[in-house]
Design a binder for these strands. Structure first.
Lengths: 156, 156
DNA sequence: CTCCCACTGCGCAGACTGCCTAGTGAATAG
DNA sequence: CTATTCACTAGGCAGTCTGCGCAGTGGGAG
């Protein structure tokens, strides 16, 4: 169920040069085209590769402010709150976590002032007891997977 | 600097069917191929589209546990801590946030037990004063961008 | 020893990409 | 009012890649 060295190198290659084709990838990896194709197909059907969606930078479309909000939810209101948050476009991501029935969500906004509007939108809902927000200043490590892939392929 | 309706529809299309080609996209959008190509090129050089990296599911490569850790940093140790965390493969993402010199990072681990090892790795570093961790149980809203794109293209 | 599987190396038809040209309509500047 | 600019349409061309299939090879498992 893990990934081997070849899978790892293929993933790294795709992460670094996403628009590369199967043929070019096979050349870089030093294997036959069929092999690269088979590996790629397997990674996709395995669920290792979820997809190749475009990575859109929220800042570039007018939402330069990112924040994380920790929400405390009233007992039994979880489903309602999830449904509510799913309707807010500025909520990019939502997790339920351990702890006192908490949720953690990632928000974006057009400005610090606009963030207030977004937060009001988010917490202006019956099931939410309390919210604490942390505004992101810097992002020293952007979302990455290559180091993990490398480790996984070494160990697996 | 924003995106218009056509950009928005193109982004949605790409998000939904990432491996679609320019030609097919132009057909679906009802525009000429050159137009679709020009829009796509512009979105890329604008920085709106950062890339088309494969989305790898950590769970599928043996890291099914996700957690968020809030770190409190000793004054002046920020740079060292960032450098330290950047070397840990299980740290998928790191943000510095407002508040008491805090950082927020996303971690993955092979199991709940393994998470202890990862946390020790992360916090076993001089500059970190305190860490509080929340284990993710569910992910009702996975990272998404389409709703925001739709809103941005309506307003822009 | 035999079977099975992954990999290699090859070829084919179809489709797509990058690049170019010419013409149109709308908005803008003079 | 006219000239210019810009985005878009529509088409063409050469080169390349993809999806697919086929035969052959080598190593591991039963």
């Amino acid at each position: 169920m893990g990934i081997d060295g070849l899978d790892g190198r293929l993933l790294e290659l795709l992460a670094h040069e996403p628009r590369i084709g199967v043929l070019e990838a096979s050349r870089r990896l030093g294997v036959a085209r069929g092999t690269a194709q088979a590996r790629l197909d397997r990674l996709k059907s395995n669920g290792v590769i979820r997809g190749f969606g475009p990575e859109v930078d929220p800042a570039a479309i007018g939402y330069p402010v990112t924040a994380f909000a920790t929400l405390e939810i009233k007992q039994g209101q979880g489903a309602d709150v999830r449904a509510h948050l799913a309707t807010v476009p500025e909520v990019l991501e939502l997790h339920t976590t351990t702890g006192s029935g908490d949720m953690l969500c990632r928000l974006v906004a057009r400005s610090n002032a606009d963030l207030q509007r977004v937060i009001d939108l988010v917490v202006g809902f019956a099931g939410i007891v309390r919210a604490s927000t942390a505004i992101v200043m810097e992002n020293p490590v952007p979302l990455r997977i290559v180091p993990l892939v490398r480790q996984a392929s070494r160990e697996g």
